[in-house]
Design a protein around this nucleic acid. Sequence first.
RNA 1: GCGGUCGUAGCUCAAUUUGGUUAGAGCACUCCCCUGUCACGGGAGAGGCUGCCGGUUCAAGUCCGGUCGACCGCGCCA
Length: 442
Amino acid sequence: MERTYIKDLKAKEGQEVTIKGWVDIRRDQGKLIFLDFRDVTGYVQGVILPNATEAHEVGAKLRGEWVVEVRGKINKRPEKNVQADKQNGDIELEILAITVLGSAKELPFEKEAPLNLDTYLDYLPLTLRTDKARAIFKVQSVIINAFREFLTSEGFTEFQAPKLIGEDAEGGANSFNVEYFKHTAHLAQSPQLYKQIMVGIFERVFAAGNVYRAEKHSTTRHLNEYTSLDLEMGFIKDHTDVMKMETKLLAFIMKKLAETCSVEFATLGADIPEVPAEIPSLKLREAQRVIKDEFGTDCSNEPDLEPQHERWLCEYSKKKFNSDFIFVTHFPISKRPFYTYEDENDPGYAKGGDLLFRGVEITTLAQRIHDYDTLVKSMEKKGLNPEKFSFYLQAFKYGMPPHGGLGLGLERLTAKLLNLENVKEAALFPRDLNRIDSLLSQ
RNA sequence: GCGGUCGUAGCUCAAUUUGGUUAGAGCACUCCCCUGUCACGGGAGAGGCUGCCGGUUCAAGUCCGGUCGACCGCGCCA
């Protein structure tokens, strides 16, 4: 049987319909019972009139979250009862019959009210049913789809990167060990090495998947399992080609969000940022000069930016360039992974950098070394044994084009886009040191 | 891992500053009343080992020590 969705009820005024969904709120006046129903498409008010005796009997015992099938007639509301600012505020469902499909206990928290993060996470199967959570993950779904759509249109091919790996990209630190295999195995921290291998096959590739970081951090921007939106492209001039691609990608994502998620952004009180035709870009040393001049802190001999510095740079970018985004490039090559390309015009510094958005780093991008001998030397310089990477190195021994790519943290992007205070709110089922879907057994 | 803040009803919070009767409120829940509500309203009720262990004191939710947990910040990172 074809499903009737709540969003389509208005067009069925005067008709008898059957909807299915959840009871959201009950307002029982004795002879008159109002029930707000919810399905994935929205809300509608239902009313049980005194003469509908059977429905009245069922309706009196309904509470929030009961799952029901409701037969009724769509009526225009009397003028004085119209709620102009609400979905379906000008119609209501006159309930004729209710079938209970699933009963519900009372919720252990106040729906739609602010919750402590700990409580929110303990009750995710239920807290995710709120408007706010639904809006967050609708937006996230649109971001992922837009990422795929844009890159596909740019000639990229999607691939599935393995999550069980032998040697990890950064040299062994901070990865989860996996027992079982006859060789040392880890959970992948990044699809990096496989992305590069795949450039040899498809020239332009992307992957959207989970990566794992065994870091005992507890911050508002870290997860032990997160989603990395990765791309890698061959035949580039240098890292600026990757920066341009990311700029176009972000502009496309924001356009898609504007087209499809205005309700969700309104629910969350968030604005969709403008992506400038050219995102401002500073070398690390220039950025450090800005921090010194504008904010009075001298960090010029540090090899990296601290969180406070990132927040300052974004503040500066917004003020000076009216941009929520800013690239910081040319970090010391010694602080970057072995596959990072050194800038021949600026020795000691990397051809690549980070993209900062509203105060946090959301992307690292770079041109990669594609010459076999240079790559092997770079590994040795980092104290890595090239023999352990012989599987990966095959790609480079047998001809790789100049290439580069990036990784974009999906949850960080989502969180900053929607003004969420903690990145855990932008992960459906976030994992941290103390939480893997708590069993609530304590 | 380090530092800060916090832990009171199912949830969100008062009472802790200055130790002092029986630890309160709103929401949710149960029962009663209610024909136009939409955060419905009115009345009644139930619900607490104040995270846990120890100490100080005539007296501890409140002070002290420990422990467990949470959140925020930091290192590292996307």
